[in-house]
Amino acid sequence: MDWTAYLPMLWQGAAVTMTITLASIAIGGVLAFLFGVLRVEGGWVLSTVALCYTEVFRGTSLFVQLFWFYYALPLVGLSFEPVTTGILVLAAHAGGYGAEIVRGALSSVSVHQLEAARALNFSRFQTLFHVSLPQAVVEMMPAFGNLAIETLKLSSLVSLISIADLTFSAQSIRNITLDSASIYSVTLLCYFAMSLVLMIGVRILERIVRRGNAFPRAAHS
């Protein structure tokens, strides 16, 4: 059986995969900054809440998280569409790891610069947004790039809750044609191509961020 007739199905699956990945990265980035900043500047209560969030989502399997959100939450009256569930779980997972990236980058800002900000009567809010974050964001970018690619690879797990992503489509075609080698080779290339697109996007964003922070970095050096 000629499996190439099913190529449109693969492309549709790839589009679903990319959509879920980009949405998860966007939401996960917001969660990462929120909980990462709270870890550093949130005080005892909020810092503890942020710590619990990061440890739960970093310390448990994404596979189990996905099934828990999809099959367990409906038992208490909370249910979501499969795509929504996939995006939320991937975003929460990425946010947990991203929060640690943000926390680490903020913690690496020189103590002398923070003391200088206090000497200039900067508030904690002003110090965070005018001193700490402009420098920390530059340091975060390579790690966030790796996290984005990891999120793309982990997105294949959403096929387990019947989302017709690239992996689900490839498996369906393989079951029809029984041509494992060709189909999975093309699927492998599709994931690699999407990883390259993400990598290029992150590199461009990193250059923009570094260029935008060139003056502050020079002023602080």
Rank of each mutant, 00 (worst) to 15 (best):
A50Q: 09
L34D: 01
E41T: 14
L38W: 15
G28Q: 10
V37L: 12
R39W: 09
V56Y: 00
V45G: 06
L31M: 13
C52V: 15
G36A: 06
F33C: 11
W44E: 12
Q65D: 06
V30H: 09
V49T: 10
V37G: 00
F33P: 00
V56D: 00
G29Q: 05
Y53L: 08
L51H: 11
L34Q: 02
V64D: 03
E55C: 05
L31W: 04
G42M: 02
V64G: 04
Q65G: 06
G36C: 05
G29K: 01
G28R: 01
S47A: 15
G42W: 02
S47Q: 14
F63R: 01
E55P: 00
T48Q: 15
Q65F: 01
G59T: 13
L51W: 14
E41Y: 15
G59A: 11
V64C: 06
T54M: 06
R39C: 05
T48F: 14
Q65H: 04
T48L: 14
V56H: 00
L51P: 00
G28I: 13
Q65E: 11
L62E: 02
V49S: 01
F63V: 10
V45A: 12
G42I: 08
L31N: 05
F33M: 13
F33D: 01
G43E: 06
F57T: 14
G43K: 02
L38P: 11
F33S: 01
V30G: 13
Q65W: 01
V37I: 15
G59I: 13
V45I: 15
E41R: 14
L38Y: 11
R58W: 09
R39Y: 08
L46E: 00
L51E: 12
A50L: 12
Y53D: 07
G36D: 02
A32I: 09
A50E: 07
V37W: 09
L31R: 04
S47I: 08
G29N: 11
V45T: 14
V30A: 15
T54H: 00
